[in-house]
Design a protein around this nucleic acid. Sequence first.
DNA 1: TCGATCCTGTAG
DNA 2: CTACAGGATCGA
Length: 282
Amino acid sequence: MPELPEAEYMVRRLTAYAPAARIRDVQILRSGVVEPQSVDQVRSRISGSRVIGYARRAKNVLIHLDQGWSVRIQLGMTGHVYWIADHRQVPRFTRVLLELEDGAGLVFEDCRMFGSLHVHRMAELAGVFAQYGPEPLEESFTWQVLKARAGRTRAPIKPFLLDQSKVAGLGNIWAAETLFHARVHPEARVDTLSDGAWRRVHAAIRSTLSEAIRNTDRVTAAPEDFPEADLLHCAVYGRGEQPCRRCPGRIRRFVQAGRSTFLCPRCQRAPRDKNKVQVKLD
DNA sequence: TCGATCCTGTAG
DNA sequence: CTACAGGATCGA
C-alpha cells in the first residue's frame, strides 16, 4: 500500500487541487468498500457537503466535511485518492466517485479491493483511531515514547515497526529502509535493544519518512499518478543481491513474518540470539 | 505470533 | 503458468 509518505502526498495534492470542493453527488461503484456501512448511509452523509480540509492519520486519508462528517479512506495495498478534472471520465478501478459541483471529481480507486471508505462524525474520529500508535512525525514522538511502546514484548523490531498500534504509518518499504539507516538488524528483539539503538531507530523513522515525502513528487508527475515510493533511492528495499551503497557487502532478502525483508548483513549486525536465522555474510 | 485470506495486476 | 506485491485482520 501507500505508506505514510504516499498517503501524505495524496492529501497534499487533494489540498492543492480541490481545497474547498463542493460535493454534488456520490457514486459507489462497489458496495464492498463501504461495508459494514451501507451505500445509502454513506451517500446521504456526503452528498451536498463542502470539503473543509484534508488530513492524514497513519495511512488513512481523511476528508473533513462541513456539517461534521469526515470521510475516512483506508488505502489498503492499492488504494489511491485523487482529483480528476472531469468526473465523467471515470478511471478503470474507481470504487467511489465524488462528483463536484464544478464538474471535477474526487476518485477513490483500488484495484485489489483491500481498501475501504467510511464516514464518521468528525468528533468520533479519536475513537476510530484509538488503537493506533503515535504519529512519527509529530514533535511529541520521542525515542522514549517509541521505546515505551515496546513494553516487554519479545517481538523482532521489523514486525514491531509494521504494527500500527505501536507506531503509525510505517509499511514494508520504509520499515526496511529505517532499519538500514539505524543499522539495526530486522530480527533484533525489541526487548534487547539498547537506548542507543532506540535513538537510532527513532531518528531513522523520522528522517526516512520525511525524505520519502520529499521524494514522492520526483516519481509522481501528473495529478492522477499513483504516488510511487522512490525505489531508485532506496538503500535496501527491492535491492536483493545488489551491492550495499555504504559498505562492500551485498543486500540480502529473506522472508520475515510473511513479508519480504531486505538488509545489509554487514551494516546491520545479526542479533546474538541463536534461535534467530543468521543471515550469512557475503 | 504465525499463516491464511481478501483480490487483481504485473513480471518472469 | 508461477511468484510476488507498499496492508490489515482473523483464527488456530
